[in-house]
Simulated scan of single mutants.
Amino acid sequence: MNVESLKLTCYFGERHRTDTGFVADELLALYARHRIAASIMLRGIDGFGLKHHLRSDHSLTLSEDLPAVTVAVDTRPRIDAVVDEVAGMPQVGLVTLERARLLQGDVGPVRLTEAPHEATKLTVYVGRQHRVRGVPAHVAVCELLHRQGVAGATVLLGVDGTVSGRRERARFIGRNSDVPMMIIAVGSGERIGRVLPELAALLDRPRITLERVRLCKRDGRLVEEPQALPATDARGLGLWQKLTIFTSEAARHDGQPIHRALVRRLRAGGSSGATTVRGIWGFHGDHRPHGDRLFQLGRRVPAVTVVIDTADRINRIFPIVDELTAEQGLVISELVPAVHARAGDRHRGGLRLADHRW
């Protein structure tokens, strides 16, 4: 199956509650009731929102309510069925809707066209304990992508989610075999399209999405600045922009990890919010796929920082991102056609999808 779909993403505090339970639990229960094809909950390690309250695992006092992210992908009717209920949760600080192509089951060659400096983002969902030819599935996928010359890939560990509509939640005691993991890769459309049949053959019941992005920086080199976007589309609906910065725990700026310096500089620079999630495995450029290893001094795991804001603010803060990734890192930008942001009684945006070609 290869269909146009929607990706619904929520950003909130891990300890945030509704009247009946934790926000994360309510969201995943909702996705399970509606049998959402693929969803995942990720725990963040650093971030802030509209209120500019910093949450970080770097400090005991700030780690009590870490950022959390849920991502849900399915056909438009299924996502439309849950959007209003999600947007109605006042404890969810930011909700975004993005267009994506969802591939499931038999996947043949896909031709992806793009302009210069643009790329394709490939997201693959696998289970924690799934194995391919004797190795963990996420390791096998990264090896394949690296071998085919894809620019980079990062593996993110989920703690809850849905798989083909069935909820899979991580438990303290148990194999957690089907609890989802998310592999995010970025590469040229030609390379991504060529690797898809082999990738699908590698996995049992593959769940894959494709999205168009702009490659802004690679290994410290500026490729292209984020695309220039108007404030609204032709109907007056707001257009938003997303920057995703792929770095590593081992990559430093003034003695601290780039992602931590980035969050603090963006907070001081007036950004509306940023969230960092730590990966467990991955690669960028020519470096071999790697992650945490026993008895290793210093963490070498990837880190992914996401910033969502209006195009004019992204334009103002991009020099900060450019400066902090002067020597390493992968940076992409994307159009976000619908955003609803909430901070107490303050609201921004809405969840009607804007239309704009870039």
Rank of each mutant, 00 (worst) to 15 (best):
G344H: 06
V301N: 14
V23C: 09
A326M: 10
Q296C: 10
T209Y: 00
R214T: 07
L324M: 15
H138N: 04
E4G: 14
T61P: 03
G152A: 04
A343I: 07
V69Y: 10
E327L: 13
G47E: 02
D355R: 10
D19Y: 13
V126N: 00
I36D: 04
P109Q: 14
A311M: 08
A251K: 09
R212S: 14
A343G: 08
A185E: 06
H52S: 10
P230N: 04
T123W: 02
R313M: 09
V86F: 07
R348H: 12
R299K: 15
H284A: 14
D292C: 13
D178S: 13
T18I: 08
A72H: 09
S39K: 09
V23K: 11
P90A: 11
K217L: 14
E4L: 12
S333H: 07
K242C: 06
I245P: 00
A115H: 12
V179C: 04
T275R: 12
H58F: 05
A185S: 08
V150I: 14
R78C: 05
I208F: 11
A274V: 04
V339G: 05
P90E: 13
Q328L: 10
V95E: 05
F12A: 10
A140F: 09
G13L: 11
P319D: 05
I184C: 07
A326Y: 05
H284T: 15
P302C: 08
E14C: 08
L243A: 08
L229M: 13
F295R: 14
S164H: 07
A341V: 06
L54V: 11
S164K: 07
R207D: 00
Q256K: 15
G174Y: 03
L112P: 01
T232L: 03
G238F: 01
Q129D: 13
H146E: 05
E4I: 12
T209A: 00
V339A: 07
W240L: 01
E190R: 15
Q104R: 15
F22C: 00
A261L: 04
L196I: 08
I173D: 10
S272P: 08
L199A: 00
P180F: 02
Q296G: 11
S63F: 05
G21K: 06
E85Y: 03
D65K: 04
R352L: 08
V163M: 00
R191F: 00
V83Y: 02
D233E: 01
E334K: 11
A354W: 05
E168C: 07
V73D: 03
G149T: 00
Q91P: 10
P226A: 03
R316E: 15
V23W: 01
V213N: 02
G349P: 01
G127S: 08
